[in-house]
Write a protein that binds this DNA or RNA. Structure first.
Length: 554
RNA sequence: GCCCCAGUAGCUCAAUUGGACAGAGCGUCGGACUUCUAAUCCGAGGGUUGCAGGUUCGAUUCCUGCCUGGGGUACCA
């Protein structure tokens, strides 16, 4: 009943084409892909298919003639109201008012699972995101990846996958040593020693804070301690901070995977040996190189430095193999644009080792530019002057951060204007959407206070006002939007849809009074209560998919 | 130099992977609260989709070249 409308219409058209061919009214040809899309203009009905335009060549007929044959053989269907042939040969379909009204009950029945794609059985999907090493507070850029990954995970769950969220990190490595040493040097400063603080060390105030805490606890007792003591403390503190920041955003992980595990299990070295055995590895200048050029890559890359340490490409290949072995149906990694160069090499490595990579997907997002007073804010973790994700949350709040981070296509560079976000907070699109939800809650409270039973059954066939039907149509788009966002791994469709849905409700609110004091309208009131309850469900679902709150009052 | 992403209304961004007349928000201008929340609604204005070619029934979308901005081009992650 709630399967996607585009699918339903496509199968009707396909049946129409087959019937026309069987009757000899259309010549035989291979069935094309039946494209069905939502009409952009009201004059073109609700849904349209340009399929007859594409058939012109194969059928050797004018598109309009083909369309006429298809339409005359179209099977009967409840959801179809009116069918028209228009323009060069489009088939335009207007949904039936009665069917639309009846969908209100279907939505209520689906409850908080409305929007789910129920038609397909899928396995487990894994989404790996954020994955920042614990060297400092999360940046705003990580926030974008975090929000995108978490929302994609929600979407995949709605699309029928079981979902695991994973955070991949490395607490060994050179960066962590520098971190530990940074804290150690700040600590020694507190003991009154004069130290030279290298430029490539972490400059941020958070380093001094960790050092100060250690000083408070141990006095000068750590004066002779080595870097690892400070590193362990820094890692614990920073990781706790990172988790706290993510929790503020509503992000929680099922699994934290430490890169160390790949060394402990020996997988990293197995991968290297297997690549070597297959002839993709050679030695040069004391380092071990990956012959990516033989695999269609642009440039050979170092896998193991002359120091004996692997570069990140090698463990990254091993990590993907580890994931593949876990048997996921789909693996999605969210990465910033700075990984664009690396990732093809990882995939090439997997293929070279004989792994299928069709279900390994990666989503790159472009950088977030923070803008303050019209000027870009340069961000560098190392140099220590940056706006942290925490500070952004302080200023703007979770719902707005999530909304803005989502409301752009991943490919789009994002300017996040801090002044604007704060200054305009009461005119925020976030509030427009949440207000629709709160308004419905208010209507329901009002109805109850006036003695209505908001759970009472009703005859939804009474819903036929254009604004009522437009609202139902808008709600029925949700499964399409979920499907589209999952297909393209692009969560930005959600905020746009949420806005459209809220707009449809606000228009309905203007045109149709829900709770009437006229006894003659009692049945209509009951029907409209059903409608707004369904709308409230749909709005809440979209907001929750985006990880935002659906407030009862504002 | 080479690679990737972007270039669409004054600003920030969409556009159902090639479909009909390119759409929203913000900003500007003008209207609507004695009625379930005006954080709302209605209307107006705003465009040679960076430029030039090409592919076809049809291009913001695909191809070629150029221009501008961002990122990358590490034995850093």
């Amino acid at each position: 009943m709630l399967s996607r409308i585009t699918h339903q219409i496509a199968s009707l058209i396909e049946a129409g084409i087959q019937a026309a061919q069987a009757a000899g009214d259309l010549p035989p040809f291979d069935m094309p892909e039946i494209v069905v899309e939502r009409s952009r203009h009201a004059a073109h009905g609700d849904y349209a298919s340009p399929v007859c335009l594409r058939l012109a060549r194969a059928a050797r007929r004018a598109p309009r003639e083909i369309a006429a044959q298809v339409v005359s053989h179209l099977p009967e269907a409840e959801l179809v109201g009116q069918v028209e042939i228009a323009g060069p040969g489009y088939i335009n379909i207007t949904l039936s008012a009665g069917w639309l009204a009846a969908q209100v009950e279907a939505i209520l029945q689906a409850g908080d699972r409305f929007g789910d794609l129920l038609d397909e059985e899928r396995g487990t999907a894994q989404v790996e995101f954020v994955s920042a090493n614990p060297t400092g507070p999360l940046t705003v850029g990580r926030g974008r990846g975090g929000v995108m990954g978490d929302t994609l995970a929600n979407l995949l769950a709605a699309a029928g996958y079981r979902v695991e969220r994973e955070y991949y990190f490395n607490n060994a490595g050179r960066q962590m040593q520098i971190l530990g040493n940074s804290v150690r040097l700040r600590y020694l400063e507190l003991l009154g020693q004069t130290v030279e603080f290298p430029a490539d060390h972490y400059q941020g105030d958070y380093i001094r804070e960790i050092a100060a805490d250690l000083y408070e606890e141990h006095g000068d007792g750590l004066a002779e301690a080595d870097e690892s003591v400070f590193r362990k403390r820094a890692e614990a503190v920073i990781f706790a901070q990172i988790r706290a920041t993510l929790a503020r955003l509503g992000i929680h992980f099922d699994n934290y995977f430490n890169e160390n595990g790949l060394y402990e299990s020996g997988l990293v070295w197995e991968v290297l040996e297997e690549l070597r055995r297959r002839g993709y590895v050679y030695e040069k200048d004391g380092a071990t190189w990956f012959r990516v050029t033989d695999l269609g890559g642009k440039k050979d890359r170092v896998l193991v430095k002359s120091t004996g340490e692997p570069t990140y490409r090698l463990p990254d290949i091993a990590y993907h193999i580890e994931k593949i072995r876990r048997g996921y149906a789909l693996m999605v990694t969210i990465l910033g644009a700075d990984h664009l160069e690396e990732y093809p090499d990882v995939l090439a490595g997997l293929r070279a080792l004989g792994y299928e990579t069709d279900n390994v997907r990666v989503v790159f997002h472009q950088f977030v530019n923070l803008v303050r007073e019209g000027k870009p804010v340069r961000m560098s973790t190392r140099e220590g002057h940056f706006i942290t994700l925490d500070e952004l949350l302080d200023e703007v709040g979770r719902d707005a951060v999530r909304y803005f981070m989502l409301a752009r296509s991943p490919d789009s560079h994002m300017d996040f204007d801090l002044d604007l976000a704060v200054e305009q907070s009461d005119r925020n699109p976030v509030y427009y959407i949440q207000y629709a939800h709160a308004r419905i809650a208010s209507i329901l409270r009002h109805a109850q206070a006036s003695g209505w039973d908001v759970d009472a059954p009703a005859d939804v066939a009474l819903l036929h006002h254009p604004s009522e039907l437009a609202l139902v149509k808008e709600m029925l788009r949700l499964p399409e939007v979920v499907a589209q966002a999952v297909e393209k791994l692009s969560p930005h469709f959600l905020p746009f849809y949420a806005h459209d849905l809220a707009a449809a409700f606000h228009t309905f609110y203007r045109d149709c009074r829900v709770v009437s004091s006229d006894p003659a309208d009692a049945d209509l009131t009951r029907a409209r209560l059903r409608l707004v309850r369904a709308t409230k469900l749909a709005l809440a679902r979209v907001l929750h998919l985006m990880g935002m709150n659906a407030p009862e009052r504002m």
